[in-house]
Amino acid sequence: MDGPAAAASGAAFDAGAVIEIAERLQGLEGPLLPILHALMDRFGHVDERAIPVIAEVLNLSRAEVHGVVSFYHDFRRMPAGRHVVRQCRAEACQAMGGEALAADLERQLGVSFGGTTADGRVTLEAVYCLGNCALSPAALVDGELVGRADADGILARVAGGAR
């Protein structure tokens, strides 16, 4: 592992680290999701090149591992921006102006949901419910829950160049 910057550039891929994670967790009952989460925690995404490595350790086909990685919204195939804003787009937040907030975030960040700003600073994603429905609209900004969210508050949290 050559650090997050190298991973983000796609230049480096540390198969040894993937093997280490997969072998450490393979004894669990149903180890694949915990392994993929561990890769997300370590690298921020699941590199295409990790799929055959995991398949080898778990004695699965590459297709099976690929199928799981691609099924779940959480497993990114590409690195995210330096900040990740996940805004709730579900009903309780809609009732409190969530759609206007979504439009505002898209306009101010200059990016659509599912995208990352050109400078790589912010990834904007939709999420369906954060369990903060009495303090909506809600967003998860770099893993921190924000209640009664507004665009200014969210943008202030992601204003810096790094976390």
Binding site: L33, L58, V68, F71, D74
Partner: peptide
């Protein structure tokens, strides 16, 4: 054991949840 989902509403359906726990598509 506590296990973490991965952002799929359908895994609240009991059989999808079991698939997910087993390490498969939900």
């Amino acid at each position: 054991e506590a296990r973490l989902g991965a952002g799929a509403y359908i895994c609240g359906e009991e059989t999808s949840l079991l698939e997910s726990l087993e390490g498969r598509r939900g």
